Computed example of a mutant assay.
Amino acid sequence: MSERQPTLRERRHSETQRLIQAHAVRLFTDHGYDAVTVADVAEAAGVSAMTVYRRFPTKEDLVLIDQPAQLIAEHVAASSATQPLVRRVGSALIAAATASTGSNGGEPAANERFLRDCLRLMVSTPALRARHLDSQYVLQQAIVEALGEDASDPDAAFRAQAATSACIAAMHTALTHWVEDDGHTELPELIAQALTASFGDDIIAAHQKD
């Protein structure tokens, strides 16, 4: 069965949403997050403030990037349950970073710059750091569910949570370095390096063979 294509209305909705967010991130980067209002963003994007609020209920939502939780969870769920937990999660994180940054030949530098600008704002703005932590928790829960461990087994659930938390912490370290280094090293490679530092070479060797 072929995948359903988005309707014209859905495409226009997505385009407007991307336009608003692009202007918001540019303004926040140039003038500072606290100095820019939602009205400023609406004016720059050529839409009404109500249109902005319909798509981004809070000012923080203008910066937050939807964690590719569904994509990561799908990678995890599709992986072999015989593999170690950290290998399953780590490989999924690398695959998602590859898709998000265009490192596999997709959308190139523009995506990377936008992603780095968003991450830079999240790191430097206290209100955004708090929301970013919330999104990390949502990602963790999605991955744990995708691992498919028996929820009725407290030990299995604990192992899944511990492995996922450790992998996400390694990814966060890679993301922070990627922003500070202005993307000189590709994000998937940095995540791979962070995972190797945490768990050893085996996790990356297995990923490269897949």
Rank of each mutant, 00 (worst) to 15 (best):
A45W: 03
D117E: 11
T7G: 13
A99D: 01
V86M: 10
S165V: 10
H31I: 13
D117P: 10
F56G: 09
A109M: 15
A110P: 12
A151Y: 14
I20N: 06
A78S: 06
D181F: 15
S103I: 03
D134R: 02
V47Y: 02
E112G: 09
R54Y: 14
A146E: 01
R55M: 14
G183Y: 13
G46D: 01
V47G: 07
G183R: 13
A49V: 10
Q208H: 15
L139E: 00
D201F: 12
L71H: 00
A39M: 03
D155G: 12
W178Y: 07
A142V: 06
R87I: 11
H177K: 08
A49G: 09
F199E: 13
Q208T: 15
S124K: 09
T7A: 11
H23L: 12
Q136P: 03
L93W: 02
A146K: 01
V123E: 06
L62Q: 04
D210C: 06
E43K: 14
Q5G: 13
E145L: 08
N111M: 11
A151E: 15
W178D: 09
E43M: 13
T98Y: 00
E60C: 06
R159G: 11
D202C: 14
Q5D: 10
A162F: 10
E10Q: 15
M122P: 05
S152V: 12
A194N: 04
H184R: 14
C118R: 08
D134K: 04
Q5P: 11
N111L: 12
G200M: 11
A99V: 06
